[in-house]
Amino acid sequence: MEFFRYLGAGTRESFTKLGRGSFFLISILAGISSVCVRPRLLLKQLHSVGVLSFLIITISGLFVGMVLGLQGFYILSRFGAEETLGVMVATSLVRELGPVVAALLFAGRAGSALTAEIGLMKATEQLSGMEMMAIDPIKRIISPRFLAGFLSMPLLAALFSAVGIIGGQMVGTGLLGVDDGAYWSQMQANLDFRGDIVNGVIKSIVFGFITSWIALFEGYDAIPTAEGVSRATTRTVVNSAFSILGLDFILTALMFGDN
């Protein structure tokens, strides 16, 4: 009996939270127009959310690409198809690993920082203080951060894929002796702009949207204590990871399910 009670209470709690989150999202979107009037707010956030994530994205992309080069070469060479290494590396990066891994890293690097920042602003009454000064914190604080996350994510994912392809090339042609011309020309011939690249970009846009939303909502909804903010930060990373991987499956099934 107790079990059902907890189950019911838990479900109800999740749905109320989803409801609060949706209202929050609507007010964020409504606040975006006022960000356009103050581009400076957006630029500052683009720097802290996007530019400061450059390093982790570049280094991770490089290593992921290098590992792909090694593993791909190992399998492809068994069938004598080393020349298609470029296709393999680029396809897996552009379609899957670029958007997904970059989004996971983004959630860990920028998402958690956003949650902690907003949560602490709430705990130190800064948000409440702005409201009492008749300044809407959603418009001034939340919306610029949301927009920054949403705009940065596709760019970071593209950077991740690009660096990864170079990493694969370094290992494949530099270390393992795949022909450089074949690496690039095969890639060029077999990668479809609409089918591969655009779909990858759509994925990263969706992930950027969902990660920024989760991170900001968890911060805004956090219990304003040290413990509450720490929990919210954890939830951001965990929930973002789940949403990214779950949505990735759905999107992949929709985009590539019929070929």
Partner: peptide, 27 residues
């Protein structure tokens, strides 16, 4: 109405990413 109501929070609630001058200038 709130523009005409000041409130002093217990913690001060200053915005931590700007200096004293900008905080006062903010509203």
């Amino acid at each position: 109405l709130r523009k005409r109501m000041g409130m002093l929070f217990q913690s001060g609630a200053l915005l931590t990413d700007m200096n004293v001058f900008d905080n006062v200038a903010y509203p």
